[in-house]
Design a protein around this nucleic acid. Structure first.
Length: 274
DNA sequence: CTAAGTACCTGTCCGC
DNA sequence: TGCGGACAGGTACTTA
């Protein structure tokens, strides 16, 4: 569900709520969401530890603990992290309840249960493959036009699929990939290697803009996404193509079309995007 | 190595 | 009303 702007929004709030809070204990309602170590070891490992920092890498949330361990959370499609002031009881889709030293509860809820949670001790950072192989992030110094050119060069994959590959660029998901391609006027089925220098430059600018706009709007809420306060974002009101199939292109008025590319639905303007 | 297809889950919506 | 199928902000695994 959440892409980089949604995860960034959540992390900015969590930083305020969680920094220097101690986890008294964790109630694990669905052990299989913990991928490493075992649920029992996880519970023992976090109990009594203080959260010293809240960080984000791509779509991963990292809670740094006082013993040097890292509590790593990936929300996948429907994961949510919501901070409650009180000692709440478990609701329908709640999977983990972190009880904090100030009486508050950090709730991890996940309808589809696809999310992944890890506790990594110092030296175990490589346990999470997806974290190790991440490419550069939009808006970072490493994500330059030149870098994007190198990423696309020689790739026979369609540009839409390439944008979703986290080892190429880290943080884009299905919404923002479609939005960036619309802004750059590039058809999602174009092969990455076929893009010219000017198109690469446009795409680089577009990726940075859609991600920055998404963060400014506090993310995109379609159904499941909630921020750390349980509220929603507003970027769904400013989308160009995503989930706008049949509606007029905001640039030329042509009906937006939908295609399945790499198993993911893709939305684009057949007239503007070449 | 790259690229594509499938599995993992639950819930909602739409057509028959 | 029920039932089947398509679909949903993602990634890991298998196959070619």
């Amino acid at each position: 569900m959440p892409e980089m702007p949604e995860v960034e929004t959540i992390c900015r709030s969590l930083k305020n709520y969680l920094t220097n809070r101690r986890i008294d204990k964790v109630d694990i309602l669905l052990p299989r969401q913990i991928k490493y170590p075992t649920a029992e070891e996880f519970a023992v490992g976090v109990a009594g530890k203080t959260i010293t920092a809240v960080k984000r890498r791509a779509k991963y949330i990292l809670l740094e603990l006082s013993d040097g361990a890292n509590l790593v959370i990936h929300l996948r499609m429907t994961g949510r992290l919501v901070y409650h002031d009180e000692n709440v009881k478990a609701a329908k889709h709640d999977r983990l309840l972190f009880r904090l030293d100030n009486g508050a509860t950090l709730v991890y809820a996940d309808t589809r249960t696809l999310g992944a949670i890890y506790l990594l001790q110092p030296g175990e950072e490589n346990r999470v493959g997806g974290l190790v192989t991440l490419g550069p992030e939009p808006l970072s110094d490493e994500f330059t036009t030149e870098k994007l050119k190198k990423i696309c060069c020689g790739k026979r994959a369609k540009i839409k699929s390439a944008l979703l590959n986290q080892s190429f660029i880290a943080g884009l998901g299905n919404i923002y990939a479609d939005e960036a391609l619309f802004l750059a006027r590039i058809h999602p089925e174009r092969l990455a290697a076929s893009l010219g220098d000017d198109e690469i430059a446009e795409l680089h600018r577009a990726v940075n803009k859609v991600i920055a706009d998404g963060i400014k709007d506090g993310g995109t809420t379609f159904r499941d996404y909630q921020n750390a306060e349980g509220g929603h974002g507003s970027h769904q009101d400013h989308l160009y193509v995503y989930q706008r199939t049949g509606n007029p292109c905001l640039r030329c008025g042509s009906p937006i079309q939908r295609l399945v590319i790499g198993g993911r639905s893709s939305h684009f303007c057949p007239k503007c995007q070449k």
